[in-house]
């Protein structure tokens, strides 16, 4: 298996200024492979990691990770703190590019195209692979502008009002904010802010939505709404979610990947199998709390 080494030193932001983003969109186009593989458990593969290692300077954060994430399903990443699950998530849309010391080896394919190839523009990639973070981070703008922002900087055509409404509807927030679209996104509750961020992410019609502990800062009611929303999002998008809440992973995901200390992917498979009868004793010990 060949390895492509990508030493990442550039400083790029998902919230890059519009001019820079537009320029990159014009200059670079993310190509899409024509064939996709199949995951071991069936379903079309949209993301495939082949022998992916990630280093932060000399520290190995991911160790030879290979897996195939199916399209149109929810895949959960679980494991103890520092196991590399968030690092893996951030590899998918090259968020690790923002970390000077980060170095990615191996192949990480989105529809058979290595996202670390030289001709891939990270900003364009992030339109196809959106991300929602642990803490809701709406911009200090109106609800409308929060959702419209991504489309504007991506230069997407079409009826903006319609696009904003659709994104808010898909994020299960429309009914709560339709009469106050001019209100600041920061005035919403935590759960509403997180759904606003999801609306912002899906407003640009991504193929994949990455979520890094999206409900860990929310109360149980807001968490429940986010979980329901994830279930609905999976009808249109591929969702990859990192969570420390194993019951949440069990509730909402179709597939589960278990990372353990040292950045190793120990087991990946159907969520039912992982939580009912895992193959590996280390996984059994971790999810049943028999560790330490």
């Amino acid at each position: 298996m060949s390895k492509n080494e990508n030493t990442i030193t550039t400083e790029e932001s998902t919230d890059a200024d519009p001019k820079t983003t537009d320029e990159k969109l014009i200059s670079t186009e993310v190509t899409t492979g024509t064939e996709t593989g199949r995951t071991a458990a069936g379903g079309r593969t949209i993301i495939e990691a082949r022998n992916v290692d990630v280093y932060y300077d000399d520290l190995r954060a991911l160790d030879d990770v290979s897996l195939q994430i199916p399209e149109g399903q929810v895949t959960a990443m679980i494991g103890p703190s520092g196991c590399g699950k968030s690092t893996f998530l951030r590899c998918i849309n090259r968020m690790n590019d923002l970390v000077d010391a980060a170095r990615v080896e191996g192949d990480l394919l989105l529809k058979n195209k290595n996202v670390y190839d030289d001709d891939v523009d990270p900003v364009a990639l992030r339109r196809r692979v959106g991300m929602v973070f642990q803490e809701p981070n709406p911009f200090p703008k109106s609800i409308y502008d929060n959702v419209a922002y991504g489309r504007r900087i991506q230069g997407l055509d079409g009826d903006m009002d319609e696009a904003v409404e659709q994104a808010l509807r898909r994020a299960a927030l429309w009914d709560e904010v339709k009469d106050q679209l001019d209100k600041s996104g920061l005035d919403l509750s935590g759960g509403q802010q997180q759904r606003l961020c999801i609306a912002r992410a899906i407003a640009v019609d991504p193929e994949v939505v990455l979520m890094d502990e999206p409900a860990s800062a929310l109360d149980p009611i807001a968490t429940s709404k986010i979980e329901d929303l994830i279930d609905e999002l999976a009808e249109e998008y591929t969702v990859v979610i990192v969570t420390h809440n194993m019951q949440q992973a069990a509730r909402i995901s179709d597939k589960t990947a278990v990372f353990l200390t040292g950045g190793e992917l120990i087991e990946f498979g159907d969520t039912e199998k992982i939580f009912e009868n895992p193959e590996h004793q280390r996984v059994e010990d971790y999810i049943t709390g028999k560790f330490g």
């Binding site: 019951q247 069990a250 009912e276 009868n277 999810i287 049943t288």
Partner: peptide, 9 residues
């Protein structure tokens, strides 16, 4: 306790 895996079974 929300048992899983062997404990769940």
């Amino acid at each position: 306790q929300q048992p899983v895996a062997g404990d769940l079974r």
